[in-house]
């Protein structure tokens, strides 16, 4: 089995890690929590000659506050993110999303950036990052750059991350008074990949919820914004009538498929249901 043939590097510094990544490029896979990578290896979905273990890189395990944003290092465990007061207060939508990933054991081991880099359209961290307009920080030995989360993905499992680059964290812009919700349908209550999900978030200003963003999971090759729904709500405000229409517009953005987890038709309908329920929840909790 492939797993036994991989060489694992455990660099002592970010600098060393970047040097190794620059050397081995596509032959080297980043190993953070291993909850996806080891599954790929065990099932022979992929073979990685080299693994770059970043779990001991202290500089990547921090969560810290900046003036306008919150930064989560790429080796930060999901459990630590969920338990962080800073995240719960300033980025609650992110906590909601990552808290339904896998099981307690998997969340103790896995990382948010690993969930992002796995680039599954069903990744539970991704729609919440979309509605926050999160920015991914990438670094190579020679270059440091940032990229809006929605530009990172090309298709299922495919990203624009360069072979010599390492994701060092995500930066999550603060919102004024964010109100949001993450809704997903799953085959069971834990240890399951979502069949369809919707993240919704706006800002409550003077009793109105504005700047609503809506992102859809597992119904397109990459997570997408329901832009038409967002525009509609911008024009009509959030009220029972606009919610119905926005939910229908969100449904239009979905192009789901049949797979072992659910059917195309069901997923399609559920985007409408979840969007309507999510928006209604925001309206009622106002």
């Amino acid at each position: 089995m492939g797993i036994y043939n991989s060489t694992i590097y455990t660099p002592k510094s970010l600098e060393e890690a970047l040097e190794l990544k620059g050397k081995y490029l596509d032959d080297m896979k980043i190993l953070a929590g291993g909850t996806d990578v080891f599954v790929h290896l065990r099932n022979e979905f992929a073979h990685y000659q080299y693994l770059l273990c970043i779990i001991n890189l202290k500089e990547l395990t921090k969560i810290f506050e900046k003036d306008d944003s919150v930064f989560i290092g790429s080796a930060t465990k999901i459990t630590d993110i969920v338990n962080s007061n800073l995240i719960q207060e300033k980025c609650n939508i992110i906590a909601q999303g990552v808290n339904v990933i896998g099981s307690p054991q998997i969340r103790n081991q896995s990382t948010l950036c690993g969930n992002v880099c796995n680039a599954s359209p069903a990744g539970d961290s991704i729609p919440p990052l979309y509605v926050r307009n999160a920015v991914v920080h990438l670094k190579s030995s020679s270059l440091e750059r940032t990229m809006p989360i929605n530009e990172l993905f090309v298709g299922p499992g495919q990203t624009t991350i360069q072979p010599d680059e390492l994701v060092i964290g995500v930066e999550i812009p603060k919102k004024i008074n964010p109100v949001g919700t993450y809704l997903s349908l799953r085959q069971r209550n834990s240890l399951s990949i979502n069949k369809v999900s919707v993240a919704l978030e706006g800002e409550e200003v003077n009793g109105e919820i504005i700047n609503l963003r809506i992102a859809l999971g597992a119904v397109t090759p990459t997570v997408v914004y329901a832009d038409k729904a967002e525009i509609y709500l911008k024009e009509h405000g959030l009220n029972p009538q606009s919610i119905k229409q926005a939910a229908l517009l969100a449904k239009e953005a979905a192009v789901p498929i049949n797979d072992v987890r659910s059917s195309k038709e069901y997923r399609h309908d559920m985007i409408e249901v979840l969007t309507r329920r999510g928006l209604t929840e925001l309206l009622n909790n106002k």
């Binding site: 099981s103 085959q187 069971r188 209550n189 834990s190 240890l191 399951s192 072992v260």
Partner: peptide
Amino acid sequence: GTYILPGTK
């Protein structure tokens, strides 16, 4: 992962 047994939750 694809054959879904009920979990404790």
